[in-house]
Simulated scan of single mutants.
Amino acid sequence: MQSALRLAARPRSVIMQPTTKCLPMDCTYCYLPFRKMNHLMPVTVAEAVATSVNPWAADGPAFEVVWHGGEPLATGREHLAALMSPFKGARHSVQTNSALVDDAWCEFLLEREVNVGVSVDGPQDMNTHRVTLAGHPGFRVTMRGIERLRHHGIPFSAIAVVSDPAPENAARFYDFFAELGVTTLGVNVEEEEGVNRGTKDSDPMRATEFWAALADAWRANPVIRLREIQRVLNFAGAVLGSHDTAPTPTSAPWDPMPTIAYDGGVVMLSPELAGFADARFGDFTTGNVLREDLDVLVAEAEERTTWIPEFWLGEDACRATCPAFAFCGGAHAANRYFEHAGRFDGTRTRYCTTAKIALLEGVTRHVRSHAH
């Protein structure tokens, strides 16, 4: 298969970086290089993106514009409203640390029917990597914002980063989010990427036990949608139904997932690469929406970059060598790059081991333990 056919011409969403600044948080595992700088996205960038997004949104199915930072609420209500206004027919989402959420922000989110995702890592003792710029624990300010959302009846999902996938903490971790009433919980094992370059050598067996214990907790009280469990269930259903099982099967193009940085630069497939540069690959962008239309940058992405063709080599190697490929679909681009010394053609990463293979094995173990 030629690489030109491997990215879809129409994405399902775009990720917009309205500001690089993350206020007031300074999480120890954050990958963003400019999170202490206040680079604001000009409205002209949003207008340029909307020229391509609006026809995509009109063409269906539902198209999502995801505002992700930095902290998108640090953009300010007036400027964020101006950035959102050019988009017609798309659904807006924000991923926020919730520290800035107050009644006025809740009114803003309700008026625009914005989907809300909150970043919080669990109970206070599991949330220690989320600290403020002043070095103080961030749990209290995060929970204050969550309480405002709940007070206004705004549903919200959550993304949690687990630095230590300890099986003994899984039940209490799950119960925290169940009591919060989140709609969906996504669990990310801490990754080595961006400026977070510390070694993350989690024990694969321990990670497997964590996922099994988390599945146990969910099964005992399945009141929220647990993203990772759902992925395994979808995979099992595909296997039983003799359908394509890989999340990115060879028979269908990949979603390019364009990320638009504050300055209009466009990075495909991996938002974690935005803001970085490399001697071999440059700044990883396919171009800038202030100079060329986004639909052109998507369609010509593989011709305009050297890193995406190298990524396909790694993808094909994963397919040929990894028994878990049908489930995971291959190592993520940023994980390959940051774990394999700046190369995209490597295969298994530590993130694969703890967040994909261990997930599949852990949920399988859970199913077997409840089979009798």
Score class of each variant (00 low, 15 high):
I15A: 09
R368T: 10
V232L: 00
A246Y: 01
A62H: 07
T349E: 03
G145M: 08
G198P: 00
Y337T: 08
F210D: 00
P249L: 00
V232F: 07
T44D: 15
T20A: 07
G282S: 09
P222F: 09
G89R: 08
V14I: 08
T248H: 07
L185A: 13
E300D: 14
D164P: 05
N335M: 09
G122S: 00
V14R: 03
E47I: 09
A90Y: 05
I357D: 04
R10K: 14
C30T: 08
N169D: 13
A62Q: 10
A246P: 01
A299G: 13
H129S: 13
T286Q: 11
D102A: 08
P253V: 12
I15S: 06
K21P: 02
P165D: 06
T305G: 12
T28P: 02
Y174I: 04
D316S: 13
T248C: 06
N288C: 13
L40D: 02
V289D: 01
F63R: 13
H370S: 04
A246S: 15
D316H: 12
Y174S: 04
R172P: 00
N196W: 05
V65A: 05
R225T: 15
L80G: 09
G329M: 04
L5P: 04
V195L: 11
F176C: 04
P271A: 08
E193N: 02
R10F: 03
G181D: 03
A334S: 14
E64S: 09
A274N: 08
P256I: 11
N335S: 15
G330N: 04
R172D: 03
V141R: 10
D164W: 06
G275I: 11
R350M: 10
P61N: 10
D102Y: 08
L149F: 01
E78G: 12
E71H: 15
V131F: 02
G194Y: 10
T347L: 04
I159L: 13
L359M: 12
F63G: 06
V49T: 02
